[in-house]
Design a protein around this nucleic acid. Structure first.
Length: 414
RNA sequence: CGGGGUGUAGUGUAACGGUAGCACGAAUCGUUUGGGACGAUUUAGUCUGGGUUCGAAUCCCAGCACCCCGACCA
């Protein structure tokens, strides 16, 4: 991508009224744009990151047998009345359609996936089964906050699993715990993310949250000093000992909930009469689990955890580009950089090429630091005199001079 | 939803109740190019509606918007 053509604008000034670091950095560096409180557009840079995250999640869901489908955001009132959530769920967006008919904008998809599964899951032979989708959810949050950390419209991955027995659900659920931890590790926040024992909301007594330690967090969790399991504040009172290792020493931390998984049991199969015929010929209710991750919140959390005084420091796995190629000069410098750009492209290396001729070196460096692309390659009079380029990693302090002929090899090794 | 705060140009900021100014950005021209370059010339603004006043960005009322704290959080 040529930076001169990229749909973005850098903003040098800090956003005056915002508090959270990720909000400030993502807006200033041109990754997202706020339409209104709690509603954001993803600009090309931000959308590239979102897609990277989406793919990491997708691959991990496929790895646990999840089949991707797509369910609609626009829902009929009836399904939400069936589960008694039309009137009890305060974050539910409701709207009127033609003929004054009532609709909901789905904040989650139990009300769609359960009746859908009823058409397909008829026998024990159809179980277990797991489907997921990645699409926009709508939640009428009373208070949107912290940029993309808490919004009213957001991309979410939700997986639903269907089982013939509680044991089968338990087994699958444990698998998902591992897969979730792996997703957060792949997204570059593994070290700061804890499996957290939490309340189950309207679904179940307990659930597991995945909480990432950061001062921007809105939850308080207690991390067990012994085994690393955490407990959410909301249920800390009833659990003064670690449920895993019985230790009673905890460290209090602020954290963001980046994922949440539930054993729903028959909470939704019951109202939708989702039953299967078991081996013994008896009709039984399907046992369900659900597993969510908010993509935007995860993106924001990655920035909260990975930044320094100059800007964002993207983990390579989710960076919008791998390489930021910067040309400092005209004539021969420019033609040399053009050539390097073409070579990188032909080798399928994702590269943003700062080809702008009217910007000073300092300005290009500052923008590059703010954007946070992992590898910066600088080409200038100085470097081509030695048939070289300068290679600097965003996360490191020092730069290296390497021969142009060695650049590809070096980058491919990274 | 309760409470607090703030609304001035694309962004950041000034202006006692008395001519809306500065910086960045953007545009044009020229000179520049290793850490946010320089000169010249432009561009663009008081959230909306009422009120007080000779006169309102400034004071008052209402609305709207955004931010923050709390509550809430499938």
């Amino acid at each position: 991508m040529l930076q001169s053509k990229l749909f973005y604008k850098i903003n040098k000034n800090k956003i005056a009224e915002v508090e959270s670091i990720s909000h400030d950095l993502l807006v200033r560096a041109g990754f997202v744009d706020q339409l209104m409180a709690g509603v954001y557009s993803y600009l090309p840079l931000g959308f590239l990151v979102l897609k990277k995250i989406e793919n990491i999640i997708r691959q991990n869901m496929i790895a646990v047998g999840g089949q991707e489908l797509l369910m609609p955001a626009l829902n009929p009132k009836e399904n939400w009345e069936k589960t008694d959530r039309w009137n009890t769920l305060d974050i539910l967006f409701k709207l009127k359609g033609a003929g004054e008919k009532d609709y909901a904008l789905a904040p989650t998809h139990e009300e769609v996936v359960s009746p859908l599964a009823k058409k397909i899951i008829l026998s024990y032979k159809d179980l277990p089964m797991a489907v997921f989708h990645i699409q926009n959810k709508f939640r009428n949050e009373l208070r949107a906050k912290s940029g993309i950390l808490r919004t009213r419209e957001f991309m979410m991955k939700d997986l639903y699993s269907f089982h013939a027995s509680q044991e089968d659900l338990d087994k699958y659920y444990d698998k998902l715990v591992k897969v979730y931890l792996n997703i957060f590790k792949e997204c570059g926040i593994g070290k700061q993310t804890y499996r957290t024992f939490a309340s189950g909301g309207s679904f179940a007594k307990y659930s597991d949250e995945f909480q990432t330690i950061t001062s921007a967090g809105e939850d308080i969790i207690y991390v067990c000093s012994k085994c690393g399991l955490a407990i959410n504040k909301e249920i800390k009172a009833e659990n003064d000992k670690c449920p895993k290792c019985q230790n009673s020493e905890f460290e209090e931390k602020k954290a963001v909930e980046v994922g949440n998984i539930f054993k729903m049991g028959t909470r939704y199969s019951e109202p939708f009469d989702l039953k299967f015929k078991d081996t013994d010929g008896q009709e039984k209710l399907v046992i369900m689990g659900c597993y969510g991750i908010g993509l935007g919140r995860l993106l924001g959390t990655i920035v909260e955890v990975n930044n320094d005084e100059r800007g964002i420091v993207w983990p390579e796995s989710v960076a919008p580009f791998k390489v930021h190629l910067i040309c400092l000069g005209k004539g021969k410098v420019k033609t040399t950089t053009d050539k390097i750009y073409k070579t990188l492209l032909s080798e399928n290396i994702e590269v943003l090429y700062d080809d702008r001729e009217d910007k000073s070196a300092g300005e290009k460096f500052a923008e590059s630091d703010l954007m946070g692309i992992p590898y910066r390659v600088i080409v200038s009079e100085r470097t081509i005199a030695k048939n070289s380029v300068e290679l600097k990693e965003r996360s490191k302090k020092d730069a290296k001079i390497i021969k142009i002929s060695q650049l590809l090899k070096t980058l491919n090794k990274k």
